[in-house]
Design a protein around this nucleic acid. Structure first.
Lengths: 337, 337
DNA sequence: TTGTATGCGTTATCAT
DNA sequence: ATGATAACGCATACAA
């Protein structure tokens, strides 16, 4: 049983006694061809196992119907986004290429080149940073959607997240439970999303006319360890906070771990709320209250937006997607005194 | 600033007063061209922003240097594999296309078609199942590597995991700690890997001359819930087991959860060991002892193997990768009585 | 309704 | 060392 290479339209045409044009038409504009011939061709295609060569088609058409998704690293966070992109891509008949910069911004250029080289029609960029030279308006950017991590000031098409709104809702939740001294473990200051989340925290306090206490805000670096460390700092303030809002789930886990080891129980003594709703949030003990990021939607919408960009005559509109507070078991009313 | 489409080799050639052949040679076989012309061409390419059209190149060469990775679902497990594949692909100059069957075996055929249509050179199949028609040797399979989940009887190129060996090591570890009544929460019987893990469990018992007790083996379905449920069943046996080896991490989590709610502490009263070493295993409280699967390597080796397959004159050899026991905090000596 | 012929942008063969 | 040219397999404008 030797592996027969798929025949070309030419050989199928020859076999059936029609022209290659007819083969092509049957596949792309069936309405243009006579019913009988169409059926005969379809049958022949089936019998001979013909598959049109997409490379040739792409070359001819000048497009690939392929999107390149570029992530800064292959983490669970981006996985769910990828899932959304894949779903939308499938619906639109697009293929999905993977790109991973591994934190090296310059590698982004390599991927830009991929679309300059016509291996993909456009890029969904999840890295949050444009490569050095590309920042100027003069730079020749490929069709591009900025997703999840939007750039500071850019009017490039983007699918962003309402970080501030999510943080605000989380803190409002804690306030609603009766908390008055609410701490915040923030993320790195240079990351736009941490700043937005910190802003949401302050806004919620302000709306509830709660004083903003500088000492109740500590900055971590998104790791579990930094969460532990900052929690310890926070518990040295007095009076101690009764709730901690963390800028991501890892730090929330660290905070809980540190609380436990300090002899506090969560949420009876101290409430903790995270951000991201990563997979482990639900599995943790106790299950973590956190702010859900619609990762799937980000991926899905990004693909749709990119389609609009590469399709002439479609209007493109950036979006900001809302987050959703998930109340699990780490947030409760403060202890009575 | 209008977006100028990348010029073709023809226009670059015209601009520089050379032939297209020279342009092509400069890019693919620089040694064949005179030093001066080469430099001049290189310079012109840079100046005009020329990027060779990979689609045209692929068409001409009859290959795409693209691999299609097909997963049954986009989970963290496959993510790490994908990372390995991506790494190898980058080293080899391959692009990575994503395919997701979402559990629908028939969709695999769609992806096979993608390579029949020349969108990719081959497939790394992570689904563990071949589509219905394709099982026969007569079926015209695309260049294929079976990864992670190997098929029952097939001599297709594969990168497999030593499930049995990993399970054996885990149970040996428990035996070494002094456990004598070791239970097993197995996975579904129709999944080859669960069967292999169960076999490893029995083999370790046999090697230690411990009696195999049917009632100490319960079958779950890889979910946290089934882990809880089966643990409860196990603890009704008497004497109760002092250790539980679970066929995956989710069920191990379920078992721990159930143990806690029954008033047992882990690992003081009962030890628990999982399988997979998923991300949350390390983060859990207490951190889970489990069997690490070299997911990255699976992906990496699969890509290398596929390269061997699509490259003439390279020999292809299937591999079985070893697992590695990770001892964390859920396994300890049994309580003294 | 169908066929013929051209070109998409390369690479490779064959001359020169 | 370089150029002219023929494919690669398809889609389409034009002819019939």
């Amino acid at each position: 049983m030797k592996k027969a290479p798929s025949p070309s339209s030419k050989s199928v045409a020859a076999e059936l006694g029609v022209s290659v044009a007819t083969i092509s038409r049957v596949l792309t504009r069936p309405d243009l061809v006579n019913r009988e011939t169409r059926d005969r061709v379809l049958q022949g295609i089936e019998r001979l196992g013909y598959r049109p060569n997409l490379i040739a088609r792409d070359l001819r058409r000048g497009q690939t119907r392929t999107v390149l998704v570029v992530v800064p690293k292959l983490s669970a966070f981006f996985l769910e986004i990828l899932r959304g992109t894949e779903q939308a891509a499938e619906e639109l008949g697009f293929a999905v290429l993977m790109g991973n910069t591994k934190g090296d911004i310059r590698r982004t250029i390599t991927y830009f080149d991929q679309v300059a080289s016509r291996r993909a029609d456009g890029i969904i960029l999840l890295t949050g940073v444009l490569p050095p030279g590309a920042e100027t308006a003069a730079a020749n950017l490929p069709p591009l959607v900025l997703a999840a991590e939007s750039l500071k000031e850019s009017n490039l098409p983007a699918v962003a997240i309402d970080h501030a709104g999510g943080a605000e809702e989380a803190v409002r939740h804690l306030i609603g439970l009766g908390h008055r001294r609410i701490a915040h473990i923030a993320g790195p200051d240079h990351v736009l999303s941490s700043r937005a989340r910190a802003n949401g925290y302050r806004k919620a306090l302000r709306a509830a006319r709660l004083a903003f206490d500088e000492s109740l805000v500590q900055r971590g670096d998104f790791t579990v360890e930094s969460g532990e460390k900052m929690l310890r700092v926070l518990m040295q303030q007095k009076p101690t906070p009764t709730a901690v809002f963390c800028a991501n789930d890892e730090m929330a886990l660290g905070a809980i771990r540190a609380l436990k080891s300090l002899g506090f129980s969560v949420p009876q003594d101290v409430s903790v709320v995270g951000f991201d709703d990563q997979e482990f949030a639900e599995l943790y003990d106790p299950p973590l209250s956190t702010v859900h990021i619609p990762r799937f939607d980000i991926g899905y919408q990004s693909m749709m937006l990119l389609r609009d960009i590469v399709t002439p005559q479609r209007s493109v509109r950036s979006t900001v997607l809302p987050t959703r507070l998930i109340i699990r078991a780490t947030s409760a009313p403060p202890p009575k005194r």
